[in-house]
Amino acid sequence: MSKMHIKMTVNGQKKELLSEPRQLLIHVLREELGLTGPHIGCETSHCGACTVEMNGKSVKSCTVFAAQADGAEVTTIEGLGNPDGLHVLQEMFKEHHGLQCGFCTPGMITRAHRLLQENPNPTEEEVRFGMAGNLCRCTGYQNIVKAILAAAAEMNSAKEAAQ
């Protein structure tokens, strides 16, 4: 099968590559673009370790073909914060012990980032429901939920201060 010319904006940078249409977005990101933050956990769209943001939606990149992502804007964990300044979610996950092995963490934080954009002031129940597409085997979620609620509070007070 022939390869397709695919253009994407990934973490703010324009990328062009040749890909088989069937190549999965997670493989494009990890293998072609060297963005190994998102991980492959279940491959059947249950675990969310591969979560990235595509056109303003949280998506499971193991269940999106490269071809579908042609023209898309994609943000991965690598696009949030930077070594000199962690994103507040990254800070709060660290602060509240919201991770252990770290394998689910990039997907968790990327998903939480979108959740807080849509619902800046969630309840604990809303966080649990909003994070239900991401599985974690280590933490039992309690500290993840705590970290996200803390990040929401932090982001809201920063917003208020800015106003």
Binding site: K57, S58, V59, K60, T63, R111
Partner: peptide, 9 residues
């Protein structure tokens, strides 16, 4: 139905 990510798609 499903979970948030799946519901976006």
């Amino acid at each position: 139905i499903a979970d948030p990510q799946v519901r976006y798609m």
